[in-house]
Design a protein around this nucleic acid. Structure first.
Lengths: 186, 186
DNA sequence: ATCGAATCAATACAGTTGTATCGGAAAGGT
DNA sequence: ACCTTTCCGATACAACTGTATTGATTCGAT
C-alpha cells in the first residue's frame, strides 16, 4: 500500500469545497473542475474520489444534511420549557444567522433539482422525514398531535425562502413563529 | 414593413415552450436550442425574440406567475363562506392537481436559482408580495391579522415541496390545512 | 535496493453551451 | 417590376462541460 491517502477524509474535504461553491455561486458553478480548485486538489484527485459528478453531488448532500442537523441540535437544551425550546430550535432552522443562510442557500439549490433527480429527491426525503419524526416526537411530549408537527414544520419550511431572498423581514418571520407557538401551546 | 411577424405572440410561444421543458426536464434542460425545437422555430428566431437566455428566462418567469395567479383566482367564488373559499383557494395553490404540480416544479426550479440570480429573486419578490397582500386583504374581512396571513402563506409554501416530491401525502397536507383553518376561524 | 501497487497531474476528447455573423428569402411600398 | 427593409435559417466560434486515458511519481513491503 504505497502513497497512503485517507480517501474518506479527502472525500469530505472535496464535498465541503463543493458546498462552499454552491453557497456562494450556485449549483451550476460547482463543476468538477471548480470544485477541484476550491478543494486545492487536482482534477484527477477528485476523479478518484468520485466516479461521477452526480456521486459527488449526492455525497455533498448527505454532508450538508449532517451539518444542518448537528448545528440545529446544539441548540437543544434539556430541561428548558418546551415552548422556549421550540422557539430556539426553530430560530436556528431559519436563515437568520450566517451559517443558517448558507445552509438555506444550499437547501434551495438542491430542492430545485430534486424535482428532476430522483436520487436527490430521495436524500431530501430522508432528511424531511427525520425532521418530521423529530417534531412529532417532541410535540407529543406535551400533547401535540402529528398534525401539529406537520403544520409547524411546513411553517418553518415556508418561511425559509422568503427570508433568504429578503421578501420577508426577520421580524415578520419571528412574529409569525411566535403567534404560531402561542396558538400551539394554548 | 415586410415579413410581418407578431413578435410579442412569438415571445409568448417561445416562453411557454421553455416552461414546458422546465416542467418536464428541469431548468438546465431548457437551453436556447432545446427551447427553439420545443417551440418549433429556429435558433435564429429565438435569438431575435430574446437577446440572451437570461432575458428569455425572466420573461418565462413572468409568464408562469401570470398563469399561476390566473388559475388560482378562477377558484374564487364570490359569496362563498370565507373558510370554504380559503380552503378551495389553498387547495388550488398546492401541487395536487396536475396543473398545480407542473407549476410547482417550475416554481421550485426558479427558487433554486433565485439565491444566485438577483433578477429572478426580484421577480419572485413581486409574486410573493402580491400573494401576501392578497392573503392580508382577504383575511382582514373577517378579523384576520397580517400575521395570520403570513402564517397561512408560509404554511402553503412549506407544504409545496414535500407534496411535490412525495415526502408528504395529499391527505396529510389536507389535514394540516384543515387544522390550520380551523384554528384560524375559531 | 528493488519491485509493484497506489496515486495523481496532465492531457485528450467528444459533446454541448450561449452568442455572433452572414447570406438569402420574403413582402410591403413605390 | 424593383427596391428596401425585415426576418430567419444555417453556420461558425470560443468556452466549457464531464469523463477517459496515460505516464510519471511516490512509497510501503520484500
Amino acid at each position: 500500500m504505497p502513497r497512503s491517502v485517507d480517501l474518506h477524509a479527502r472525500r469530505r474535504e472535496i464535498a465541503d469545497a463543493m458546498l462552499r461553491l454552491v453557497e456562494t455561486r450556485g449549483l451550476a458553478a460547482a463543476t468538477v473542475r471548480e470544485t477541484a480548485v476550491a478543494a486545492g486538489v487536482s482534477l484527477g484527485a477528485v476523479q478518484r474520489c468520485f466516479a461521477t459528478r452526480e456521486e459527488m453531488l449526492l455525497f455533498a448532500l448527505t454532508r450538508i444534511n449532517e451539518r444542518f442537523t448537528a448545528r440545529v441540535l446544539t441548540t437543544v437544551t434539556p430541561g428548558a420549557p418546551p415552548r422556549d425550546a421550540a422557539r430556539t430550535l426553530i430560530t436556528e432552522m431559519l436563515p437568520l444567522s450566517e451559517p443558517g443562510r448558507a445552509d438555506a442557500r444550499v437547501a434551495l439549490a438542491f430542492l430545485g433539482v430534486a424535482a428532476e433527480d430522483p436520487q436527490v429527491a430521495d436524500a431530501l426525503a430522508v432528511a424531511h422525514r427525520n425532521a418530521r419524526a423529530f417534531f412529532i416526537r417532541h410535540l407529543a411530549e406535551f400533547g401535540g398531535t402529528p398534525v401539529d408537527a406537520t403544520r409547524l414544520l411546513a411553517l418553518v419550511d415556508g418561511l425559509r425562502a422568503p427570508l433568504l431572498l429578503g421578501h420577508l423581514s426577520p421580524a415578520d418571520a419571528q412574529e409569525a413563529i411566535d403567534a404560531h407557538l402561542h396558538s400551539l401551546f394554548a
